[in-house]
Nucleic acid binder design. Structure first.
Lengths: 170, 170
DNA sequence: CATATCTCAGTTTGACTGATATAC
DNA sequence: CGTATATCAGTCCAACTGAGATAT
């Protein structure tokens, strides 16, 4: 889909109780932070899809590539756990990247069952090509945030993720 | 999938440069904030799926219900725009909720073409049933955040969303 | 044997595009 | 007529489950 169709009458107005200034703290069910995160991710993904569409690489595949750019030589199963999808789903995703020549898989010398995934030169070229458009997208998201606020946001998100990653639901 | 399979050797350690303390600011590509948002949303959704699985309601459907709880009488098209999906996709999602009796659709008296969506008593009961488990999930995510930090996070996320919602990509 | 990885096969879900009817 | 809504139909992709081979 395109991101050009925006609802000016959004269901969650940006100005709604941003800093908890309203009266008794339980006026009515406050828009949850789970929802706020989801909304930002939704709009980011829609934009990222727009950016990546001509390439045929999905947002999930692109994300996997950026992870590999930072930590080369992961297995598909490791990538899967990190992305909260099944190993099979990640196998499919990675196969697509392999078919496009963006990654290569080589046997782990120490563990003949493991296939270590690496970016190919083509994969690195792909990331280089999209680094700037993606950086612009991030910059747009952060337009109104100061440098300090960006650091704070990163820190808070990391702490949220860490808290949820520690344990299963109950 | 279950959230119980966690990778202790995550691709993006929570402690990685949280506040930009490292040297020259361009050591190597810093983990993008787009990625940080995505990661939190991924783990939230995995947990939310676990919570909702027994009910047969998907996380997206649940989100639509919570939106309706705050703003009753939206049309499917309005919900779609707000969720960055096509009208057809939202029709499918909403049909599911209708089949389960969680929402009802009535003609807009002023626009015979529009179907206004409302929560049924059953829909409200459903939300009531899951309010507490979902609240616990959010609480777990925010365990390490002070009340002030939670407000800051909400504010920053809202500003990110607002910045991205203003314009299409180019 | 227990565990982990990878992969094949089949299925399902959820989103998409396209087309159509209708209302404003 | 142009725009918006709803919905039917078909397609496609990305995820799932299940089963099995193989390595540690």
């Amino acid at each position: 889909m395109s991101t050009s169709a925006q609802d000016p009458d959004g269901a969650e107005p940006a100005g709604a109780a941003p800093t908890g200034v309203r009266g008794s703290a339980s006026d009515r069910p406050s828009p949850s932070l789970l929802y706020a995160v989801k909304q930002v991710e939704l709009v980011v993904r829609a934009h990222l899809d727009d950016v990546l569409r001509p390439s045929g690489v999905t947002a999930s595949q692109y994300t996997a590539l950026t992870v590999l750019a930072r930590r080369d030589g992961l297995t598909s199963a490791e990538l899967a756990r990190n992305s909260f999808v099944t190993a099979q789903a990640m196998t499919d995703l990675v196969s697509g990247l392999d078919r496009r020549g963006l990654i290569s898989r080589t046997r782990d010398p120490a563990h003949a069952r493991r296939l270590l995934i690496s970016l190919t030169d083509q994969g690195r070229a792909f990331l280089a090509e999209y680094r700037e458009p993606v950086r612009r997208l991030e910059e747009r998201m952060l337009t109104d945030l100061t440098s300090q606020e960006r650091d704070v946001l990163r820190d808070l998100l990391n702490r949220c993720r860490a808290a949820l990653a520690t344990q299963p639901a109950q």
